[in-house]
Every structure is written in structure tokens, then in C-alpha cells.
Lab assay of single mutants.
Amino acid sequence: KDKDLLKGLDQEQANEVIAVLQMHNIEANKIDSGKLGYSITVAEPDFTAAVYWIK
């Protein structure tokens, strides 16, 4: 199951987060929520590491 990592990002921010996570071998998903911006989700086992790397 995926957990929400970040919400309300613009496309550039979302792409930067995806890139950082991929560099650390964390699979992440970018979801277009329309006017609400983009959300990033990661698998539950990767959540703690993902939070660490996006600081």
C-alpha cells in the first residue's frame, strides 16, 4: 500500500522530489490532482527513508 509523502506541489517540485528519491532507489509515484497540485506517494516500507531524503 502506498502512503502520501507530499501534497500540493507544482510540477517542478514534484519532479525534483521524484528525482531525489530515485537516486536513493526509492520508487515514488507522482499523481496529478488538478487544481490541488501534484502528490507524491511511496510504498509504506519506503516511507521513513523517503522522509529522510527529502529533508
Rank of each mutant, 00 (worst) to 15 (best):
K1P: 09
K1H: 10
K1A: 10
K1R: 12
K1G: 10
K1W: 09
K1S: 08
K1C: 13
K1D: 08
K1Y: 09
D2M: 15
D2P: 13
D2N: 12
D2H: 15
D2F: 15
D2W: 15
D2Y: 15
D2Q: 15
D2C: 13
D2R: 15
K3Y: 09
K3S: 05
K3P: 05
K3G: 04
K3N: 04
K3V: 13
K3Q: 07
D4P: 14
D4L: 15
D4M: 15
D4S: 13
D4Y: 15
L5K: 01
L5T: 01
L5V: 09
L5S: 02
L5I: 07
L5D: 02
L6S: 03
L6G: 02
L6V: 10
L6K: 03
L6R: 03
L6F: 10
K7H: 14
K7S: 12
K7T: 14
K7I: 13
K7Y: 12
K7W: 14
G8M: 05
G8K: 03
G8W: 07
G8E: 05
G8N: 08
L9T: 02
L9C: 12
L9Y: 03
L9N: 01
L9K: 01
D10R: 10
D10W: 04
D10I: 05
D10M: 07
D10F: 05
D10A: 07
Q11G: 09
Q11L: 15
Q11T: 08
Q11R: 12
Q11E: 15
Q11C: 13
Q11I: 13
Q11P: 09
Q11N: 13
E12Q: 12
E12F: 11
E12N: 11
E12I: 09
E12S: 09
E12C: 15
E12D: 12
Q13Y: 10
Q13W: 07
Q13I: 06
Q13M: 09
Q13E: 10
Q13C: 14
Q13H: 08
Q13G: 06
Q13V: 07
A14V: 04
A14R: 03
A14N: 01
A14I: 04
A14S: 03
A14D: 01
A14E: 02
N15I: 07
N15D: 13
N15V: 06
N15Y: 07
E16F: 15
E16G: 09
E16L: 14
E16R: 14
V17C: 09
V17Q: 01
V17R: 01
V17L: 10
V17S: 02
I18H: 03
I18G: 00
I18E: 02
I18C: 07
I18P: 00
I18N: 00
I18R: 03
I18V: 07
A19L: 11
A19F: 12
A19Q: 08
A19C: 12
A19T: 07
A19D: 04
V20H: 13
V20Y: 15
V20L: 15
V20A: 06
V20M: 15
L21H: 00
L21S: 00
L21Y: 00
L21K: 00
L21E: 00
Q22I: 10
Q22R: 14
Q22D: 04
Q22G: 07
Q22T: 08
M23D: 05
M23L: 12
M23N: 07
M23T: 08
H24K: 04
N25A: 07
N25S: 08
N25Q: 07
N25H: 10
N25W: 06
N25M: 07
N25F: 08
I26N: 00
I26A: 00
I26S: 01
I26V: 04
I26K: 01
I26C: 04
I26H: 00
E27H: 14
E27W: 13
E27T: 13
E27D: 11
E27K: 15
E27S: 14
E27V: 14
A28P: 03
A28M: 03
A28K: 01
A28T: 03
A28R: 01
A28L: 04
N29D: 06
N29R: 14
N29T: 12
N29G: 05
N29C: 10
N29K: 14
K30E: 03
K30L: 15
K30S: 08
K30Q: 07
K30G: 04
K30H: 03
K30V: 14
K30C: 13
I31M: 05
I31P: 02
I31W: 09
I31H: 09
D32S: 09
D32G: 11
D32T: 06
D32N: 11
S33E: 15
S33W: 15
S33Y: 15
S33V: 11
S33P: 02
S33M: 15
S33D: 14
G34V: 04
G34L: 04
G34M: 03
G34Q: 04
G34S: 03
G34T: 03
G34F: 05
K35L: 12
K35T: 12
K35A: 13
K35D: 11
K35P: 14
K35H: 12
K35G: 11
L36Y: 13
L36N: 13
L36W: 13
L36R: 09
L36Q: 11
L36F: 12
L36E: 12
L36D: 12
L36H: 12
G37D: 03
G37Y: 06
G37E: 03
G37K: 07
G37W: 07
G37F: 06
G37P: 01
G37L: 08
G37I: 05
Y38F: 12
Y38T: 02
Y38N: 01
Y38L: 04
Y38C: 06
S39F: 10
S39R: 13
S39T: 15
S39Q: 06
I40E: 00
I40W: 02
I40V: 09
I40H: 00
I40T: 00
I40A: 01
T41R: 11
T41S: 08
T41G: 03
T41K: 07
T41H: 06
T41P: 00
T41A: 05
T41F: 08
V42A: 01
V42C: 04
V42W: 04
V42K: 00
V42Y: 02
V42Q: 01
A43K: 13
A43Q: 09
A43P: 08
A43Y: 06
E44G: 09
E44F: 09
E44N: 05
E44S: 08
E44W: 11
E44I: 07
E44Q: 06
P45T: 14
P45I: 14
P45D: 14
P45S: 15
P45H: 15
P45F: 13
D46W: 10
D46I: 05
D46G: 03
D46F: 09
D46H: 07
D46R: 03
D46A: 05
D46N: 07
D46T: 04
F47Q: 02
F47I: 04
F47M: 05
F47A: 02
F47Y: 12
T48L: 14
T48Y: 13
T48G: 10
T48F: 13
T48I: 12
T48H: 12
T48A: 14
A49S: 08
A49D: 08
A49Q: 09
A49M: 12
A49L: 11
A49F: 07
A50N: 00
A50L: 04
A50M: 03
A50S: 04
A50G: 03
A50R: 01
A50V: 04
A50W: 04
A50T: 03
A50I: 04
A50Q: 02
V51T: 08
V51R: 08
V51L: 14
V51M: 14
V51F: 09
V51W: 14
Y52P: 00
Y52Q: 07
Y52I: 06
Y52D: 05
Y52S: 05
Y52M: 10
Y52K: 07
W53L: 07
W53E: 00
W53Y: 08
W53M: 03
W53V: 09
W53Q: 00
W53D: 00
W53K: 00
W53P: 01
W53N: 00
I54N: 00
I54T: 05
I54K: 00
I54R: 02
K55A: 12
K55G: 11
K55P: 05
K55R: 10
